[in-house]
């Protein structure tokens, strides 16, 4: 029974990883590609590790620590990449409506 739940969770995680790859292919510009890659693959990682925790209940605490590390590092690295891409002026997609960073910088009057 626990193995069935674990297997279903691992399968869900694999589906999320696949959707991350699909999103990276189909998104229009660099920023949306980064968003698709990071969010979906972080969730896929978390689900796969949770499924493993159901398979081997003795490893639960260690897998929880690994999930914590993944949640700490993936978003930070993606944020740094997106800021760097904005800094070297990679163009946004044509259909973009709001550019929040430009508005904030213009309001503060300079680079911050």
């Amino acid at each position: 029974m626990m193995e069935l739940i674990g297997s279903i969770l691992v399968l869900l995680g694999a589906i999320f990883h696949f959707s991350a790859g699909l999103g990276m292919l189909r998104m229009p510009d660099a920023y949306t590609r980064m968003q698709a890659g990071t969010k979906a693959s972080t969730l896929g990682n978390t689900l796969v590790l949770l499924g493993l925790a159901f398979y081997h209940p003795g490893w639960g605490l260690k897998l929880l620590i690994i999930v914590y590390f993944v949640l700490m590092t993936n978003p930070i690295s993606s944020h740094a990449l997106a800021r760097a891409a904005y800094g070297i002026r990679i163009p946004l997609a044509g259909k973009t409506g709001i550019d929040a960073l430009r508005d904030v910088r213009r309001k503060r009057g300079g680079r911050k």
Partner: peptide
């Protein structure tokens, strides 16, 4: 020249404060 002395964002600094000792 101005962009080269740009400081990094607060999220990266906070994350580095937590992660580098670990």
């Amino acid at each position: 020249r101005a962009s080269e002395s740009r400081a990094s964002s607060e999220i990266v600094r906070t994350g580095a404060d937590i992660l580098v000792p670990l």
